[in-house]
């Protein structure tokens, strides 16, 4: 019961924050609200038993990406213009997409159903056999690092790509003493 009440409150706050972001024109406020949104999401993840994800969302969504966005605002501008274009087309697009999503939910198993396909097919293997096969208490770590370790290697590659991408876009690779003189050549 308590859980339901917490969830309802969290949802109300999430939706309020999201709507506020739509309307706000001060970018500083937008970024702060998006940090709040991430923190609320992290709390929601805790109630859904995903503590690892909550930890990451808090560190990334509320931490790093807020810092980066503040940095961007400092380098660009602090407010947005009021939208000038008509909002009918976006609204139609969004309602259409939402309708397809809604249609898709109609045949979904109930929330928390222990007999849902996702719960009975692969999950039991990870939750029982990983004790013998990997012997790590945190099953999320077992899957992340070993069963689906290749996805994690891909994830590291994505981070690597982003790192060198930002360097390429903003500054380029600098070596110890090599400076701009030779760029002109």
């Amino acid at each position: 019961m308590i859980e339901t009440i917490i969830n309802v409150i969290l949802f109300a706050m999430l939706v309020t924050t999201a709507f506020a972001i739509v309307r706000t024109t001060r970018l500083f406020a937008v970024v702060m609200l998006s940090g709040v949104f991430s923190l609320l999401t992290a709390m929601l993840f805790v109630t859904l038993d995903a503590v690892d994800v909550a930890f990451t969302e808090a560190a990334v969504g509320a931490g790093i990406s807020t810092v980066l966005m503040l940095g961007t605002i400092a380098l660009t501008t602090r407010s947005t213009k009021a939208p000038t274009r008509s909002s009918t087309m976006p609204l139609v697009l969004v309602v259409l997409t939402g309708a397809v999503l809604f249609y898709g939910t109609l045949d979904m198993p109930n929330f928390g159903d222990p007999n849902a396909p996702a719960q009975v097919h692969l999950a039991p293997h990870y939750l029982t056999d990983s004790i013998e096969e990997i012997d790590v208490p945190n099953v999320v770590t077992s899957i992340l690092a070993s069963y689906r370790g290749f996805d994690t290697l891909g994830e590291v590659a994505v981070v690597f790509t982003a790192g060198i991408g930002v360097l390429l876009i903003l500054s380029g690779l600098r070596r110890r003493r090599e400076e701009e003189e030779e760029d002109e050549a």
Binding site: A50, D151, V159
Partner: peptide
């Protein structure tokens, strides 16, 4: 709870 979606989302967050 099923840990597999957690792993997928950790990757997706990154």
């Amino acid at each position: 709870s099923n840990p597999l979606p957690h792993v997928l989302i950790l990757t997706a967050i990154v």
